[in-house]
């Protein structure tokens, strides 16, 4: 006799959260304990999946953008997990190889804690951004694909490229229901030493969260305001939803 779900189980259709699970005494039913165990195992595995740099670069190149490949100063996953400082810096070779390409926006695609998120969402999000960039007349620098990377690495890359702003598309820490969620961090006037309070974040780009189009809409709004006001971060509130998230403006041919 398995413990039944709760009588309000129908509400579970409204959220990916685990509601109406039922209980055995005060505890979770056996099926839920086992389901949670499986989800945890998948999330743990996602942390250790390597980024397929070649495949991601090819999809970016197919959008007509140049893709560059670099790595952080963290040599492997185990070092990366214990040494965030190394994940925020480029390797010596990578730094030497980055020449200035002045642009309005530098895009950085980083594995972060979920390569699965980058595989699934990064190219689609950049594709959705392109019409906004074309309409606004923004120049986009080479897309830098970087492994064993943390958010702040975008500062060093943006500074080296001499970009007016940098957007880091990075795999978020895997959740139990969401092993493939992408985040975007926008920083105006990137340079080494910027703090997190100087960034704007768009999170939860994943099948049951924000779509690539919605994320691109928000990013375009934030970038426009960041360039106009000359800042990003807590002083720049995201009010993009005051403007209807309609289809992006048509590209002039």
């Amino acid at each position: 006799m398995a413990a039944p779900p709760d009588p309000w189980r129908r509400l579970a259709a409204l959220t990916p959260a685990r509601i109406g699970l039922g209980r055995a005494g005060t505890a979770l039913p056996t099926r839920e304990v086992l389901a949670l165990g499986l989800a945890h195992a998948r999330a743990r595995d996602a942390v250790h999946l390597p980024l397929d740099v070649a495949a991601v670069s090819a999809r970016i190149a197919a959008l007509g953008l140049e893709a560059a490949q670099v790595e952080s100063a963290a040599a492997d996953r185990s070092t990366y997990l214990r040494r965030p400082d190394l994940g925020r810096r480029l390797s010596h070779a990578a730094r030497a190889g980055l020449a200035p390409v002045p642009c309005d926006l530098a895009l950085v695609v980083a594995d972060g804690l979920s390569s699965a998120a980058v595989h699934a969402q990064a190219a689609a999000t950049i594709a959705a951004l392109m019409p906004h960039a074309a309409a606004a007349g923004w120049s986009i620098g080479p897309v830098v694909v970087v492994t064993q990377a943390r958010v702040a690495l975008g500062d060093e890359i943006g500074e080296a490229l001499r970009a007016r702003a940098v957007a880091v598309l990075i795999g978020e820490r895997p959740g139990l229901s969401t092993p493939d969620s992408l985040g975007i961090y926008l920083t105006h006037a990137p340079r080494v030493g910027r703090t997190d309070a100087e960034r704007n974040c768009i999170s939860n780009i994943q099948p049951r969260g924000l779509s690539p189009e919605q994320a691109a809409h928000r990013l375009a709004w934030l970038l426009r305001e960041a360039l106009r006001r000359g800042l990003s971060g807590v002083a720049l509130k995201d009010e993009s939803d005051l403007i209807a998230a309609t289809a992006p403006p048509p590209v002039l041919s």
């Binding site: 959260a17 685990r18 509601i19 699970l21 979770l28 820490r173 959740g175 139990l176």
Partner: peptide
């Protein structure tokens, strides 16, 4: 108290409504 201990927004695991009942008991 997070449903099922799984925060689907922040992507981490915490204690659940069930866990609180356990501690009360």
């Amino acid at each position: 108290g997070v449903p099922g201990g799984d925060d689907v927004m922040l992507g981490y695991q915490s204690t659940s409504f069930h866990d609180a009942l356990y501690a009360r008991e």
